[in-house]
Design a protein around this nucleic acid. Structure first.
Lengths: 234, 234
DNA sequence: GGATGCGCTGTTGCATGGCACAGGACCTTA
DNA sequence: TAAGGTCCTGTGCCATGCAACAGCGCATCC
């Protein structure tokens, strides 16, 4: 066989290709708008064009790439408006997750959220931005998992993929004082969840998402719609 | 063989196949759990297996079919739990749409909603269930469109597809008195939207969705969990 | 009689080649 | 010079053939 990269030789080629490309797009290794040639990808992964095609097709329905018939495949570049819409959905889903989690009572995710906040406090105290960014992501993740609704989780994941969120979090937290305030808001949300006050938890969570969105957009260049978003890379 | 190209001959085969299969599954022409052979579909549509494969792959990411590697492709059979989750999402999205529409003020969708309710009143008055079912679907559709958020609309559509909603609406409305009550709830929601009371509109809309869900499940056979294909043991 | 191993058949996974179309460079012409 | 047409190249689209695996019936063995 071909030079099997890593050990994941068991899963089908197509799954490997789509997973790899998804990660690259989300992490920003590939510029938005960049063209993706089937042939080039096939050669790079050491497979034929068929599995590459199927992988790209899947990424298209996930909203990560755009296939222009007979022209080419390109990484999607969300417009300013689409970003607004995506954040509106994020607010919606995370708010709902907070409500649902509050209704469930004490479950394991709650314990993990408490642990997460303890670590986050420490990270903020020593101004460790990188670690805090990780913990923020984990906090929101635990919230979604705690909602115990697989459909909500699935929609949330595709949403976050379209936002290419990992690239954005750092920008948001680079605003002065944002980390501390964000941490406080997380505490408040968890508190309300513990009190089983679903309505308030949802409301506060939505406000939190709006606040983080403002902080994020404030840190972005005023790019006229399309200029790629802060591609400061390793 | 493929003389069927009625007008849409221009679009790629794969799009045609996926669109056709999607409709069949949603409308219930194909039983949940039924196997879909690539070869059989290819012959039926007069194309090769390749575009059929890509179409099925896309339907998989939409959650309509399940591809078991080296075994076959089957129409998804949502479990009781998944149906609950889907309705939870429906409640969420439609409630949010009502809120967003209320915030937008008087837009064209509002006029169309008023027209819809006038027709619905007439349909209820003459006990025309079929027409009323159409109008209900249109009402919810207009609500989503009125939210003016393309991402919300996209997620809503895949959601409804997974529910195979057209099959269900009739069941729901067959409950005695349900049509009249449903019509009243629609009026109340639109009233609150006109008053620009987003909070109340969302709340009432969510209650409406819950009510319709109850009416629906009451009309369903108490299927013994999941009587279908030879689903392997737990 | 019951358990086990073997091979057959049907299905999807992948590779390869021909084809049609979009877009741009280039040449021709007024 | 500027406008128009033509050819060329790159790309995705589809057809076809081979290979690998899952499931299952059947013969075999204990």
């Amino acid at each position: 066989m071909n030079q099997r990269t890593s050990g994941s030789a068991k899963r089908s080629m197509q799954v490997r290709v789509s997973a790899e490309m998804r990660q690259r797009i989300i992490k920003g290794d590939i510029e938005p708008g960049a063209p993706l040639s089937e042939l080039a990808l096939a050669e790079e992964f050491g497979v034929s064009r068929t599995p590459v095609r199927e992988a790209l097709k899947q990424l298209q329905t996930e909203g990560l790439v755009e296939i222009r018939p007979r022209v080419g495949t390109f990484v999607t570049t969300p417009s300013r408006r689409e970003i607004t819409e995506l954040f509106e959905m994020k607010e919606l889903l995370e708010g709902a997750a907070a409500r649902l989690l509050a209704q469930r009572g004490r479950v394991t995710e709650i314990d993990r959220l408490e642990g997460n906040l303890r670590e986050a406090d420490a990270a903020v105290a020593r101004d460790d931005r990188e670690r805090y960014a990780q913990l923020v992501q984990e906090f929101h993740d635990l919230l979604i998992l705690g909602a115990d609704n697989s459909k909500l989780e699935a929609h949330y994941r595709t949403l976050m993929n379209q936002l290419a969120y990992p690239r954005l979090v750092n920008t948001s937290l680079s605003q002065p004082g944002r980390a501390l305030q964000s941490d406080r808001e997380h505490h408040l949300v968890l508190e309300l969840i513990l009190e089983k006050d679903g309505d308030s938890a949802e409301r506060v969570m939505r406000e939190h998402v709006r606040a983080s969105r403002r902080a994020l957009l404030a840190g972005l260049p005023i790019s006229s719609s399309n200029a790629s978003i802060g591609t400061a890379s390793p």
